[in-house]
């Protein structure tokens, strides 16, 4: 069963009164719950938020399923989202994703590597076309101006970092 932490509950309560209507708090509360649930929005997350926010689960689910940044399936510790639209597509975003996936041991996008570290998604324009190709891991700052070599090294570095902890 998923339950928000005490701080998480406090956060949700304050968000509920932040906007003109409490429905407007759904997105921020989903982010919070997703973070506390290891990076994805499970049916239990929706049920729990529904109870805490006193909003029908269907309304929360419709938001969770409409927007791409809520993962409806488990993802690895590093959800690597590579932009492949237009400029990034022209400048190597697609090749770079394939190379990173090979290094990480993922056969296809959406699949998590056996070590549980990596999940890859090809995503749509992230608004950083002057530094193409680029990517975003989870909701962290963009990693820009990549080459295939740099991107593959990034996978190795993240793996080493994860082992170190």
């Amino acid at each position: 069963m998923f339950k928000l932490s005490e701080d998480g509950l406090k956060y949700v309560k304050s968000e509920l009164t932040r906007y003109e209507t409490k429905q407007s708090a759904i997105i921020r509360c989903l982010y919070r719950a997703q973070d506390e649930n290891g990076g994805w929005v499970s049916p239990e997350v929706i049920q729990h938020l529904s109870e805490v926010m006193e909003i029908p689960a269907a309304q929360i689910e419709e938001v969770a399923t409409f927007y791409t940044m809520f993962n409806k399936q488990k993802v690895g510790r590093y959800h690597v989202q590579v932009c492949c639209t237009l400029t990034c597509g022209m400048l190597g975003g697609r090749e770079l994703t394939d190379a990173m996936m090979k290094e990480a041991g993922c056969k296809k996008t959406g699949e998590t590597s056996a070590d549980g570290l990596f999940t890859f998604s090809k995503v749509e324009c992230l608004g950083s076309c002057d530094t193409a190709p680029m990517l975003q891991i989870n909701r962290d700052p963009y990693i820009e101006s990549l080459s295939t070599e740099k991107a593959v090294q990034l996978v190795r570095d993240l793996r080493a970092k994860a082992k170190g902890h």
Binding site: T85, L86, T87, E124, C125, G127, S128, C129, D130
Partner: peptide, 11 residues
């Protein structure tokens, strides 16, 4: 929301 592909000036 700046999401028209190619746009990054608002950022």
């Amino acid at each position: 929301d700046e999401s028209e592909p190619g746009t990054f000036k608002d950022r």
